[in-house]
Design a protein around this nucleic acid. Structure first.
Lengths: 130, 130
DNA sequence: GCCTGATTTGATGACTCCATCAAATGCTAA
DNA sequence: TTAGCATTTGATGGAGTCATCAAATCAGGC
């Protein structure tokens, strides 16, 4: 099982582990909701926004907690989540910037091959055409 | 199978997919080597630095290529890799900043609970009580 | 106490990822 | 064109992740 970040593990392992924690669409959406709210959000609200089964969300929240990306705060019968550090939001922002750049470039390549009549598309994985 | 970033998929799926591409220690090390070199690095050099079997490295390079994080350039019998975008390095930098913050905080909490005699440790998951 | 709503935990099968090995391909030199 | 190095591809078993469901826990009101 995965361990917490700790100084006796090389940083690249810890870093890979961090990305593993982020590698699911529902977890990304959850973090983005928390990020945009700027403050805390209850599990009930998350359930409303994400529209899934409670236990399913809870599993993903557990992963986010394990990776220390969010903190939970129980008040009464409700549990409120928030980003554990502002740097989590930074990471999402930088990731979006990279993706937009990749998309921009891909589309530029499509456009240029379109304008070369008779040549099939080939760049990188445009080859697989998906 | 995973698809390329494309505009007809919601961004949070694409983003999760990006993190999946980063979620392995060898891929992180590879990207860091490319990032630090500032320029291109041959597969042979990567093999020397990483010390693993060629086919194993090649599989991970294929993943990085599929995610458009690196580009490959064949010259003669050698293949040279480089980061596809400077933003890839940015992403690693921001990830490191976040991890260092998490580590810093964890150790601060350890220190403070040590100095509060009689109190059990509770940080992070205090709310869920675990 | 008991009931109800909110949230988490545990168990299960389907699916995906990873490391290893064998085989194939690309290139250069002889 | 044959030999040999560099790199990639394909196949395989084992480990990990995910979605679903049932059951457990926690808090508040009756």
């Amino acid at each position: 099982m995965d361990r917490l970040p700790s100084s006796h593990r090389p940083l690249y392992e810890v870093k890979a582990n961090l990305f593993k924690g982020l590698a699911h669409p529902l977890r990304i959406r959850t973090l983005e909701i928390l990020s945009q709210s700027g403050s805390e959000v209850s599990v009930t609200e998350l359930l409303d926004e994400l529209g899934l089964e409670a236990s399913h969300l809870s599993q993903h929240l557990a992963v986010l907690r394990k990776h220390r990306l969010v903190t939970a705060d129980r008040r009464g019968s409700q549990v409120f989540y928030r980003l554990a550090y502002p740097q989590v939001a930074d990471l999402l922002t930088v990731a979006r910037a990279l993706l937009l750049e990749i998309l921009r470039e891909s589309q530029a390549q499509l456009a240029s091959t379109d304008s070369l009549p008779g040549l099939g598309s080939y760049p990188a994985d445009a080859a697989t055409g998906r």
